[in-house]
Design a protein around this nucleic acid. Structure first.
Lengths: 156, 156
DNA sequence: GACGCGGTACTCGGATAACCGATGTCCGAGTGTCGCCGG
DNA sequence: CCGGCGACACTCGGACATCGGTTATCCGAGTACCGCGTC
């Protein structure tokens, strides 16, 4: 089991956009250069975030991406779901023989699937407890200033 | 993100072995036929469980696999870790620029990674809260009897 | 009749392919900007 | 001097390759059982 790279990239991009101040869109190429990741693929990830309503994409010259929500309204779960998709990590393929089951047994999922899904719910709950604003507070204060300074330099 | 099939198979095999009573080893072929999965690949998964000390493998004729622990001592986390490996789902590649960071900042992981790991810890905690004995209790009582009856039929 | 031994069938174990999704790349569509031209 | 217009440069967006890992398969190593021969 493994989360895709896009999750980390997306989270850092959101954090960066928040720190910059969200006054204007930032193009993918700038962010990719900052993080040293393939620009085209990062673009793909940011597209997914835009489709999910997390980012706002503006086309054309001086375009780019910016946050569509306030940092306090954006949770880690939102970003993870946008990149990874809404599917559960554990998928019950109903491996148990259901022919012999009573009707009542077939109605409810098997105990194993229930337990796995409950654990996954705990994970999702923990993710949604962290907002982007939260992360900004937890991060070292110097990081925000450093990010702003970097952006002021490469802005055009 | 997606858990491999082997997790579901491994869990159901452990449950089946527990219900049968763990008196004697059960060969992979029997379990595979029961669940209608590829025998050779199921064997691979059970090998992983054996390496992890969850199952006991006995070679030769009338050999197979049996539980190495009491159901109360076996958690879902044990099985998941044995199949999926010990790695975290979220891997921080230190995408943040660390050149500009102060020494103190570099010492601790970035806030994003910390939050992601905390959520994953919640998932693992929820998994380890469920023992196999627990699952057996939660499952419909008829299932145990049905499994025993099936095994009595195909035993040799 | 009892013991030892060789052959056989069965099962695990690891090495080896096939397939699928994540990763990575590219070019076209659309839009804002800048400079030029005419009034 | 001011407004309109055209060309350009920039950026997103989705279609197209590539790569690694899960899924799947196979054959060799080892072990217990069974039958036979011998004492």
């Amino acid at each position: 089991m493994r989360l895709s790279e896009g999750v980390e990239w997306g989270l850092h991009c959101c954090l960066t956009l928040a720190w910059i101040g969200n006054k204007e869109p930032v193009p993918t190429a700038k962010l990719a250069a900052h993080f040293d990741v393939p620009p085209a693929y990062l673009n793909k990830c940011l597209q997914a975030l835009a489709r999910a309503g997390i980012l706002l994409s503006v086309a054309g010259a001086h375009g780019g991406f910016q946050l569509a929500k306030a940092p306090a309204e954006l949770t880690l779960l939102d970003v993870v779901t946008a990149i990874e998709g809404p599917d559960e990590a554990f998928r019950c393929t109903e491996i148990r023989r259901s022919e012999g089951c009573t009707r009542d047994e077939n109605r409810r999922p098997c105990a194993i699937a229930a337990a796995m899904h409950q654990a996954e719910a705990a994970w999702r709950a923990a993710l949604s407890a962290h907002t982007l604003a939260n992360i900004m507070t937890a991060a070292p204060p110097a990081a925000a200033e450093r990010t702003r300074r970097w952006y002021a330099l490469i802005r055009r």
